[in-house]
């Protein structure tokens, strides 16, 4: 499942970069995040309860940030499993200055498996996109929207 999007943030690229690397910001903006524990450099142990309405699953796994090129680019890898199945995602975040703000492009390839993939395909793509969108929307709110 390939997803992508762009957001415009009303903060200079360096600020955006710092926020994107701030565990506290990740904690606040990741939908359904229950727990985020730094277990190594750029490596986190995470527990998420995500889904929509009554359809929620708890996943625990790891989140890794790699290929860091401050302040423009990093890659993020996420792997988790739980009762409703598992998910595995890889994506990249690219920043570029735009006026006084910053243009953020994100793209990712998320694989969802097990129960939720088998019975939830009708909404899976849309919900996945929505959740990622929520994350960046939250960043926008923290940093102020550029649009």
């Amino acid at each position: 499942m390939k997803l992508d999007g762009t957001n415009t943030l009303a903060a200079p690229i360096e600020t955006v970069w710092t926020t994107l690397n701030d565990p506290e910001a990740l904690r606040r903006c990741t939908p359904g995040l229950q727990e985020l524990k730094e277990v190594g450099p750029d490596t986190y142990q995470a527990t998420l309860t995500i889904g929509i309405a009554a359809v929620k699953g708890t996943y625990s796994g790891t989140l890794r940030i790699t290929d860091k090129q401050p302040p423009r680019h990093y890659r993020i890898a996420l792997e988790g499993s739980g009762g409703a199945g598992f998910m595995k995602g890889e994506g990249s975040v690219d920043l570029e200055p735009q006026g006084n703000g910053t243009l953020l492009r994100w793209s990712g390839d998320v694989q969802v498996g097990g129960l939720i993939a088998g019975v939830g395909q009708r909404m899976l793509g849309g919900v996945g996109k929505m959740l990622i969108g929520q994350f960046f929307k939250c960043l926008e709110q923290r940093l102020g929207s550029g649009t």
Partner: peptide, 13 residues
């Protein structure tokens, strides 16, 4: 809708 979701354990109220 709710009962199938519960039977599949997608919803666990």
């Amino acid at each position: 809708s709710l009962v199938p979701l519960m039977n599949m354990r997608l919803a666990r109220p």
